[in-house]
């Protein structure tokens, strides 16, 4: 569905995407992970055929976004980072009007709008102005709008950013159903739980490059240990204690409020910490998550 080779995008002197290779087959749920400014949105806009690549090769649905932009866009569903809904129009009109842009007949678009409103649990609000909707409802409506042309490929740029946990789970549930129906999903996110829930395969981007690629599980195996033991000592003691436990784990990370010991066996490591006469105020043994991988690969420094 998507094939990119050495894809690059520059804005003036700034290179936002610095040569990425991506391949997404039909039916896959594929994720772009990365901190802000990693180049995710720039990549998505190129894939959406609204932003021409600066260099490299890009093929979407077997077509070139430069020559066949309208033909590609006719088969894409796009849920942009910002909702871009028409706030003055009703919920239902937003869907109907948008469906018409794809050349769908009025009766068809009307039936699809009702079906999508049901699917996204917005039927009760069909006649309300978009302005009056909550953030979660607007997001669901934007996703509904992106489905009006029954796309072969659905692009979602941070589909749940800014939503409360309930709304996020509703959106995830809907996206999971679409995935089961065989819709190819490509999404960007900086939520690791979202990526673990939805993505078959993902790439981690940082500074315009791909720094890791694989399934969520394989990335954890590759870039982290099976378990993490978190030890909390008194404030200011962590730095000094790190050396005393360094040999007990594959990797030790010092945070201001705790030590992270990356290890295959969390409980075993913890027992040996106690054997050395160290008594943390609080301990937690957990499995490694994608978040550990992400922080390992992209660093803990704030990027904005």
């Amino acid at each position: 569905m998507i094939e990119a080779r050495d894809l690059r995008k520059s804005f003036g002197g700034f290179e936002a995407v610095r040569g990425i290779d991506v391949e997404v087959p039909r039916g896959e749920a594929f994720g772009f992970l990365g901190p802000n400014g990693a180049g995710k949105t720039s990549t998505m806009r190129m894939v959406a055929a609204v932003s021409p690549p600066t260099s490299g090769r890009l093929s979407i649905l077997g077509l070139s976004p430069i020559d066949d932009g309208p033909a590609i866009r006719a088969r894409l569903g796009v849920c942009p980072q910002e909702d871009t809904l028409d706030n003055d129009l009703t919920v239902r009109d937003n869907l109907v009007v948008y469906g018409r842009y794809f050349g769908l007949p009025r009766t068809e678009v009307s039936a699809r709008a009702d079906e999508l409103l049901r699917f996204m649990q917005l039927t009760d609000r069909a006649g309300d102005k978009v302005e009056d909707l909550s953030g979660g409802m607007k997001r669901r409506l934007t996703i509904a709008r992106s489905l009006i042309n029954q796309p072969d490929l659905l692009l979602l740029d941070e589909p749940t950013t800014g939503l409360d946990p309930q709304a996020r789970h509703v959106v995830w549930d809907k996206l999971f159903r679409l995935k089961q129906q065989g819709v190819t999903l490509v999404l960007t996110t900086h939520y690791m739980d979202e990526a673990e829930q939805l993505c078959d395969r993902l790439v981690v981007m940082d500074g315009g490059r791909i720094v890791a690629e694989g399934s969520p599980l394989s990335l954890i195996r590759q870039h982290s240990t099976r378990e993490v033991a978190e030890l909390r000592f008194g404030v200011g003691e962590h730095e000094a204690l790190a050396d005393q436990v360094a040999d007990l784990a594959e990797r030790v990370e010092v945070l201001p409020d705790r030590l992270l010991l990356y290890t295959q066996d969390g409980e075993g490591t913890l027992a040996r910490v106690h054997e050395r006469g160290l008594n943390p105020v609080a301990v937690l043994v957990r499995r490694s998550t994608l978040e550990d991988v992400f922080l390992r690969l992209t660093g803990r420094t704030l990027v904005d």
Binding site: V50, R73, A74, V78, L85, N87, Y98, F102, R145
Partner: peptide
């Protein structure tokens, strides 16, 4: 700028 509907319009087949 406010509704950004132009962006959604050009994400469709419209030029």
């Amino acid at each position: 700028k406010w509704h950004k509907t132009y962006y959604s319009m050009i994400a469709s087949p419209l030029s």
